[in-house]
């Protein structure tokens, strides 16, 4: 399903049917996920427009109310000044993006997975996060590229104490997602004190076979 298409086009598998068909002077976009409501949109464009379908930052559904993704995992204890790489899973949202005259616009965003929000911090001053629970893995786990991606997370403990971590908050605006046979991104968390850490994304694919999502 992921990739670039010229319109009109049609894609179908066991879970989803996606199509852009010509309807007189218009193009009609239809998306039907199994057991879910059908989504339709009319495009006023020419055949020169192209469609990209790729994973996007998982912070848009069901409504964009936050820019943060929170991944909860089994608590891990990292040694003083330690450095370790772990792998987590993160949720995927799929964007259908139309391009024409050098401009892009998302015509549809959907997901096959469940959605859940959480609050990080106190109700006054905290932030709403899109919440996802993952196991931790020492090597890249198997994942369905339409449901979840693989997050390679470098953990760097800069303190002189053992530190317990059980969640990571990632800023969706600076996410860099790559896709190919699987979906992946690469992030780093620096623990600056037992109660303070900073996260950043590394703008390089985990493997050379992956390409940058739009």
């Amino acid at each position: 399903m992921y990739g670039k298409y010229k319109i009109p086009f049609e894609y179908s598998d066991d879970n989803i049917t996606l199509s852009i068909t010509e309807d007189g002077d218009f193009f009609r976009y239809v998306r039907q996920i199994k057991d879910k409501e059908k989504k339709e949109k009319t495009l006023l464009t020419t055949e020169n427009a192209t469609i990209s379908i790729n994973p996007i930052e998982p912070i848009n559904l069901p409504k964009q109310i936050t820019q943060y993704l929170e991944i909860e995992f089994t608590p891990v204890l990292i040694e003083p000044e330690g450095f370790k790489v772990i792998f987590l899973l993160f949720p995927i949202e799929i964007g259908v993006i139309v391009s024409g005259n050098k401009k892009m616009e998302a015509i549809d965003i959907f997901s096959f997975g469940p959605q859940k929000y959480s609050l990080y911090g106190p109700s006054a001053g905290g932030v709403i996060t899109k919440c996802y629970c993952s196991d931790i893995y020492s090597s890249p786990p198997e994942s369905d590229k339409f449901y979840s991606g693989i997050l390679r997370l470098e953990i760097e403990n800069k303190t002189l104490e053992w530190v317990n971590i059980s969640r990571i908050i990632l800023d969706g605006y600076s996410m860099k997602i790559y896709y190919g046979p699987y979906v992946a991104m690469f992030a780093r968390i620096k623990i600056l004190s037992p109660t303070n850490a900073e996260t950043e994304f590394i703008r390089e694919p985990v493997a050379s076979e992956l390409q940058n999502a739009t």
Binding site: P62, P114, K116, Y117, S118, L119, Y120, S123, I128, C131
Partner: peptide, 10 residues
């Protein structure tokens, strides 16, 4: 638990 906007935490 299945409602997205019913917060997990608190």
């Amino acid at each position: 638990d299945k409602e997205p906007f019913c917060l997990k935490n608190p």
